[in-house]
Amino acid sequence: MYISLNEILKNSIFKSVTILAGEAGLNRKVKRISVFDCPCNKDILNRNTLINGDLFITCLEQFQDNKDGIYDYINALIMTKSSGLLIVTDDCIDTITKDIIKICDESDFPLILIKEDVPYAVIMDTVNQYIAIENLNAINTLKLDKIMYGSVSNNEKMEILYSINPNIGQYLRTIYVDGGFDSAIEELKTHILYLNSRDDIFVRSNNYYIFILSADDIKYLKHHSDATALKVKEFINNPKVGYSRIYSRKDISKALEEGKRSLETAKTMNMSFQEYNPLSVMQLLVSVKDTQEAHDFYEAYVNAIRDNVSAENLKEILLTMEIYVANSGDYKATGKIMNQHENTIRYRVNKVKGALNMETDNIKFNETIAIAVKLRILMNEIFY
């Protein structure tokens, strides 16, 4: 995982930049940053000095007496798939000819002018902060994956957790968040905040953000985690949030799994917050919604009804069952919503009971239709 040049340019120190060429290549990933103020020659290429993902800074003064040298320079950067070239100050901007612009545009190679006289050191420190955070995220994501899915002992899990934060508290809770930060700057600030946190961990994986919050007091941890989940809304757009329950730190893998499942439930149900609830049928079904068994269950349910009603009435019957389940089996409430007499609803429900051969088993019937309705929602199936 590496940060894109486009994200880096959102930093305030680059507020005065002008994209001279290669705008289509701003999504290139930046792996390292260097100063490249020397003339380009074949030895540089032969020694593999330049590599894919390099971002370079230059003032172009090396070409004042040899303006044609810029062509070899730019072609070398393009050939080695560098991320881009930052030109600091416009004193030598006349070196960038229309031909150079054309070459860079054709190769989607970003050529960026920083008009203000920003020191090289400031640029490099800023970019290196982003790169360091990205590398740390990649490492910590792998560590959490090993805790969750690796064949490691409990002691090894603790060693991995302590390698991320040696001060993790006695109790912990995970919060998984889906959404995008308002800006790369806000995300960087959040990373720095948690790097300086004594008890907590913040990791960005490929698909979500993970907060591991800890404390030696359960009551404080609950308050801390609730406050964190609410604060998330201040810097992440339209977040979906999933909590785990509070665990002893030795059960970190359980906390990670619960946080992840809670987030999946929140996303599936389009809910802002979802705390893990072991008695939640919907949460249980989320984990199996993509299986063949889930699809077979729903299809068997629909086919049993289809075989006992007319094609014209199938959709109406299925809709009735949806509303009936949503209203906890209340005939009158269902009829009011559907603008039907409650006896009509009762007739339809009994029709489905018969189709499922469950006329004498109300518990099994209610269980079956509730699961079928929930599966349809989770699988986003349409009525037949």
Rank of each mutant, 00 (worst) to 15 (best):
I3S: 02
I13E: 05
I13V: 09
T18V: 15
G22A: 04
E23N: 12
K42C: 04
L50P: 00
D54P: 01
F63M: 09
F63Y: 14
I70V: 15
Y71V: 15
D72Q: 08
Y73H: 04
L77C: 11
M79I: 02
I87Q: 05
V88E: 00
T89N: 13
I101H: 11
C104E: 00
E106S: 12
P110A: 06
D117F: 04
A121S: 12
I123Q: 10
V127L: 11
N128K: 03
Q129R: 14
I133K: 07
N135Q: 10
L136N: 11
K143T: 13
L161N: 03
Y162A: 05
S163L: 08
N165D: 09
Y176Q: 11
D178R: 14
D178S: 15
G179Q: 11
G179W: 07
A184Y: 07
A184I: 09
S197L: 09
D199S: 14
I201L: 09
I201T: 05
F202T: 02
R204T: 13
F211P: 02
I212K: 01
L213K: 06
S214P: 05
D216L: 07
D216H: 15
K219I: 15
H223I: 12
H223C: 00
H224P: 00
H224C: 03
D226Y: 08
K231H: 09
P239R: 08
K240A: 14
S244W: 03
S248C: 10
K250W: 10
D251I: 02
S253C: 06
A255D: 11
T265W: 01
T268K: 10
M269C: 04
S272Y: 04
N277P: 05
V281S: 04
Q283C: 10
S287Y: 05
S287Q: 14
K289S: 12
T291R: 06
A300H: 13
Y301Q: 03
Y301F: 15
N308H: 15
N308Q: 13
S310D: 14
L314T: 00
E316H: 14
E322M: 08
Y331V: 07
Y331A: 07
T334R: 04
T334P: 06
N339A: 04
I345T: 03
V352A: 02
K353C: 07
M358I: 03
N362M: 06
K364I: 05
L375N: 01
L375K: 09
R376K: 15
